[in-house]
Nucleic acid binder design. Structure first.
Lengths: 340, 340
DNA sequence: TCTTGTTATGATATCGTTACCAATATCAGG
DNA sequence: CCTGATATTGGTAACGATATCATAACAAGA
């Protein structure tokens, strides 16, 4: 029964064990040059033996802390936890503090941004639709606070941004449905205020066109990215005289709504109707059958955003970096070949 | 266009501005006694003038950092973001690092716990069902790592825990339905492996009994806390010869499933059927109509858990503290008086 | 007046880390 | 063998905050 709380080893312990100065050990830990391979090996062995883990807080005090502001809108709330996970993991690694502010807790998004600025953040991370809001970007520039755009479909040249290729994602999914043999494919649009909604629709339309398929106007319904909007869109689409054999919704919430309506009409999924979503949020695996969807690496993207934000806050930071997340088509049980 | 990055003021700046030593300033900041009111005022004014904000990272280096392990199971994934938000907010305030580990990423929960221990955490936060697992608790004790139980329905005496009164919550909701005039009230049970599921069922049953209402066995269905399980439970309940006029599901996911099935059967909510959930997760406001449910202050509870975990990791920490979250009945559009 | 005790303040050391600079080792070219 | 450049190391001083101890001030009791 060892109640002994073992003290975490410090870099000095490592240095002593390896028989070098703590400075040299620090250099090894941080991968700096000008350390002989032999010494490097010794230090690395000591690190492994002692189980040393750098204390990122102490490191941050020396390197200079940054306070980074992060907004979130609970619109994409299913993705929120991944967003937070990735951001905080990176923040803890880089030793910066994150100040999180729900944008919908303020009358206007501008006020949420102002609150962060007043708190003294060095830079902020803006999710959609704020990252496409010219007024907000301008007020930030005036305050001398840099902004990293997160998940915008139109990253600005010369400004740091983390995003995915919504167009390509929509293409992948449309392609998938076409390859399964579908011809009558309907689309549920997102909120046009979000740049991503536009790109996803373009991706759908162009892929259909390239495959020589026409997109009937009645086959494109507005869902506003919400479950409720998805319900109405689904009611419209599934009551058409010529019912589509597949419905591609611009996000998972709407796809889930389509699924609910389809069940209500006694349709069997995917035998009677294929349903595809986008985002791979938790609802994609909550509903039954689980949704075929496009996964974005939200956590990694959030981590990248924090990294960019830190660079931005640093005096010598190099702005204008773009990071693109890799998309992946996740095939689950909600899509199949159309009924004969 | 001031590109000048203002340096954040330190406690020394404050001290100088107030004409005292940094130690005295620190005492004021931390609310320690033994500072004259006049001096306290002077320092506080300096803090306000300079806009000083304590650097919690630097503070933590001196006070002793703790690395706190946090497990999560994506079972309650809708609550995950709130859980993370609260925990991270507190961690950043207290200057501790959080190491988060998804328990389902490991073959057994015990291995997830072991990974945290190996990483050198000072204590861990255990959500259900891990917090009720005797084997895990024992192995932690052997390793000398304290555990804070999160959201268990049976907090152990003498062990730190953060929880809600599931029993009382279920009572509140059952009472609400009875007060609306419902008599034929059905219940969708959660996963019996979770202690909270049992307590919620007890709360339902006892309140019914106290109101002189009988609970028909056919009116209690198993839903396993999942959407899918909720679907089956709802199909069973809504196809009974004598259909209940209200269904109380032990969590929101299952309530959402009930809602979906009810829509499918052409029932109007709440005119034909009242539906109640528990947890107030994001699905409660995603489905239509929005769910009447019981809100738990998950974020605050997570923050408390982090605080307890830090106390636990500190040598002189006082264990055995219990923190209970306040419940609140959120009345939305899914409940109303029963049809005549 | 002289303890004695309590309250109020400051000086200094320290946390774990890295920045900065000085010191030494090594090597190429003459 | 020397010269200067470059690679490799260590010493020291920070970073921002607090713990600890010492000191100063003041009041109450002997």
């Amino acid at each position: 029964m060892s109640t002994q709380r073992r003290q975490a080893p410090t870099i000095h312990d490592v240095a002593q064990a390896a028989g070098v100065s703590s400075m040299t050990a620090s250099r090894v830990v941080n991968g700096y040059p000008h350390v002989r391979q032999a010494v490097r090996d010794k230090v690395e062995e000591a690190i492994k033996t002692l189980g040393y883990r750098p204390n990122s807080l102490a490191r941050a005090t020396r390197t200079g802390v940054s306070l980074i502001g992060m907004l979130y809108s609970n619109a994409s709330s299913s993705n929120l936890s991944n967003y937070l996970m990735g951001a905080f993991r990176q923040a803890s690694q880089s030793g910066c503090q994150l100040l999180i502010e729900p944008s919908q807790a303020h009358p206007t998004p501008a006020q949420a941004v102002q609150k962060l600025v007043d708190a003294g953040v060095g830079s902020v991370i803006l999710p959609p639709p704020l990252c496409d809001d010219a007024a907000i970007l301008e007020s930030l520039e005036k305050a001398g606070v840099g902004a990293v755009s997160f998940a915008t479909a139109f990253p600005r040249e010369g400004a740091p941004a983390v995003f995915i290729d919504d167009f390509a994602g929509a293409r992948m999914m449309t392609r998938h449905l076409i390859d399964l043999g579908h011809v009558d494919i309907a689309f549920v649009r997102g909120d046009p205020a979000h740049s991503t909604a536009q790109r996803r629709e373009q991706g759908f339309r162009e892929t259909m066109a390239q495959a020589g398929l026409t997109v009937n106007d009645a086959y494109v319904a507005d869902g506003g990215f919400s479950y409720r909007g998805g319900l109405e869109a689904a009611r419209h689409l599934l009551n058409l005289r010529r019912r589509p054999s597949a419905i591609f919704a611009a996000n998972d919430d709407m796809a889930a709504a389509v699924s609910a309506v389809a069940h209500g009409l006694g349709l069997s999924i995917p035998a009677d109707l294929s349903i595809a979503g986008f985002d791979d949020t938790s609802v994609a695996t909550t509903v039954w059958p689980e949704l075929t969807t496009i996964r974005q690496p939200i956590a990694d993207m959030a981590a990248s955003a924090v990294k960019l934000a830190m660079d931005l806050a640093r005096p010598g930071g190099e702005p204008g970096v773009h990071v693109q997340g890799e998309l992946q088509l996740i095939e689950r049980a909600s899509t199949a070949a159309p009924p004969r």
